[in-house]
Design a binder for these strands. Structure first.
Length: 580
RNA sequence: GCACCCGUAGCUCAGUAGGAUAGAGCGACCGCCUCCUAAGCGGUAGGCCAUGGGUUCGAAUCCCGUCGGGUGUGCCA
């Protein structure tokens, strides 16, 4: 079934050709569809066609054009067209719109809004990318949640996705860490303390190294051993890595996140010669102050450093090596890097280098940048303890949710499980609520606020839908296209129901825009609008004790809302509790 | 200095491939549970869309300048 917008565009195009048979340069159906907009006020209709642009072609004032077109459009079963100050405003036939929208949503069910446009296309998403021996804190929340949500959104549209946790597992800091461990650590304490214990060792190293600079050399020596594959160094290093992944996995489990690949810096260590060779071969490498660079002056950027004076590689080298590997391995159509905007220049530089290497897919490398996070107005500082660990945040959010449940729903059975869904949901929602480029200043009271437009609000609305549906009579529950016999769609013609139907009908488009703009917040916003609209509908209309037929129609709408909310929640990485 | 990003209500933000009278949440104040989940709903108050030009029938939205803020800017990642 063609959507309403397309059908209205077809009506307009047809009316244009009949009203102005002599005119040339009339817009096509698709052009008309692009002109169509949603009026600012509901009283102005469901769609509006602005006639200003046609004024020149048709040598007529916009109001005259609108009037002529409205006279030529006769489709009462679909909509009415009324001219108003240069616009042609379309008012849906409400009953028809309700029937069509509801049946579309209910037939699609959990797949409403999904698509197949991505079938056969692969998208690599590089996100979260934790550092070994460092605790997961709120600074990692955005990359993790944006990446995870994008993954679900692209999956929903039929793409094959590859989620990649590009581990920060290479560098002299690991030599220093081994030094600290050998001097002051022991197996049991570190095994028990996990990443926190490693962090303490690292801090101690820095304190002691200020007094005793020889420690730096010792650290470098241990790192050299890692590089050379020394068995003891490798064993300790791999153990640190396993400890970090073990601790981090607890958080990933709470968030429901998994990765297809953990290939990080260490993995690419032996794959960088190819990059250097290729750059040399293509005459892109020049020596400057002893370092090997790719000059980017003609692109208006500082040069991209490939090799240090001492011949060591740099992170641009590693990123290029990883991109080449991923193209060879996954044949991606796009490769997304969900990384903070601080690294914007870095990405623009090495993307340009890949382009200069002659790879047409350089244009498919996308830096999905997001804003900085600060804590109570100040930069996060792990050393000073000015930091919020993700695990602590999620646990406190769970506790807060549990308190509220004990207060408001003392009879709820699985309180702990629901509290986890709600508390964690609040954190996820807050992170994906606004455009990703916005900076976030973290405050505990804000993070733990569950009133207003928050995660709990949308989950609450979902639970409310579930509650209504549970109490509905078993018979006559609408489930799809064949419920026309029992549902009276006249019961969905009020402004509240219509607004809700409008939002439901636009949901698939919202998912696509979110994908096109790498912007999960567009799904969050659609989700919130639907929830708000349902709560208003719910207060203005009786559902269960409405008359026969109307009750079924409103239950159908409730089911459609419930399913769409559930889908939208899933797409941003939240759970949808049925009771709370 | 240069580059990128951002300036919309007291606070946090929607709205930007131009469209009609600029919206929401929080905070403040006032209401609504004998009724399907009050984690809800309604109302009041709160705006020179940073600023000056330009393009246009029409600009918060596009272009140029200015001011303010953030980030980055050759051997860390």
């Amino acid at each position: 079934m063609m959507d309403m917008k397309g059908r209205i565009a077809a009506l307009i195009a047809d009316a244009l050709s009949r009203c102005y048979p002599q005119a040339s340069g009339l817009p096509s159906v698709t052009e008309v569809q692009d002109f169509l907009e949603i009026p600012p006020e509901k009283e102005m209709g469901d769609y509006a066609f602005p006639c200003f642009k046609l004024s020149k072609v048709l040598r007529q004032g916009p109001p005259q054009i609108a009037a002529a077109l409205s006279g030529a459009i006769r489709a009462p079963e679909l909509c009415e067209a009324k001219p108003l100050s240069g616009y042609l405003n379309f008012f849906f036939n409400r009953e028809n719109f309700a029937r069509e929208t509801l049946q579309t949503v209910l037939v699609a069910g959990a797949r409403y809004g999904s698509g197949t446009e991505g079938v056969g296309k692969t998208i690599c998403i590089d996100f979260s990318s934790i550092n070994i021996a460092k605790r997961f804190h709120i600074g990692h929340l955005s990359t993790t949640m944006i990446g995870h949500s994008l993954r679900r959104i692209y999956d929903f549209l039929g793409y094959t996705t590859v989620s990649i946790n590009h581990l920060g597992d290479w560098g002299t800091q690991f030599g220093k860490l081994i030094t600290a461990y050998k001097r002051w650590g022991n197996r049991e304490d570190v095994e028990r303390g996990g990443v926190e214990a490693l962090t303490q060792l690292y801090v101690r190293f820095h304190d002691e190294a200020e007094k005793n600079p020889a420690l730096e050399d010792e650290g470098r020596a241990w790192f050299k051993k890692i590089e050379d594959g020394d068995p003891q160094a490798t064993e300790i290093f791999n153990w640190f890595k396993a400890l970090t992944l073990r601790d981090t996995q607890r958080v990933y489990d709470m968030l429901g996140i998994s990765f297809d690949s953990y290939n990080g810096e260490a993995f690419y260590n032996d794959k960088m010669g190819r990059v250097v060779d290729e750059l040399k071969e293509k005459n892109l490498l020049t020596i400057s102050d002893g370092a090997s660079i790719v000059d980017l002056e003609e692109s208006g950027m500082p040069p991209c450093l490939i090799l240090k004076k001492d011949g060591a590689t740099l992170y641009a080298t590693r990123d290029i090596a990883a991109a080449l590997y991923r193209m060879d391995t996954y044949h991606f159509d796009k490769c997304l890097y969900v990384v903070a905007y601080q690294q914007d220049l870095h990405f623009r530089q090495w993307f340009k280098v890949v382009e200069k290497m002659g790879y047409p897919w350089a244009k498919d490398l996308i830096h999905v940048a997001f804003g900085m996070i600060s804590y109570e107005g100040q930069t996060l500082a792990t050393r000073k303890g000015h930091v919020v660990y993700l695990e602590d945040l999620l646990n406190r959010a769970k506790e807060k949710a549990l308190e509220i449940i004990r207060d408001k729903s003392p009879e709820l059975e699985n309180k702990e499980a629901v509290a986890a869904q709600v508390g964690i949901g609040a954190v996820i929602y807050a992170d994906l609520q606004n455009n990703r480029i916005k900076d976030i200043d973290f405050w505990w009271d804000r993070a733990l606020n569950f009133d207003g437009e928050t995660g709990p609000y949308v989950q609450y609305t979902h639970a409310r839908c579930c509650s209504v549906l549970r109490k509905a009579p078993k018979q006559g529950m609408p489930s799809g296209a064949n419920d026309g016999a029992t549902s009276n769609y006249g019961g969905l013609c009020d402004d509240y129901a219509q607004e809700l139907l409008r939002l439901l009908s636009r949901f698939p488009q919202a998912v696509r825009e979110a994908a096109a703009r790498y912007e999960p917040s567009m799904v969050t916003r659609a989700l919130t609008e639907i929830a708000k609209s349902y709560n208003k509908f719910y207060y203005e209309n009786r559902i269960l004790d409405a008359e026969n037929g109307v009750r079924e129609a409103r239950l159908g709408l409730t089911l459609a809302v419930k399913q769409t909310l559930q889908t939208a929640l899933f797409l941003i990485g939240m759970d949808a509790p049925e009771r709370m």
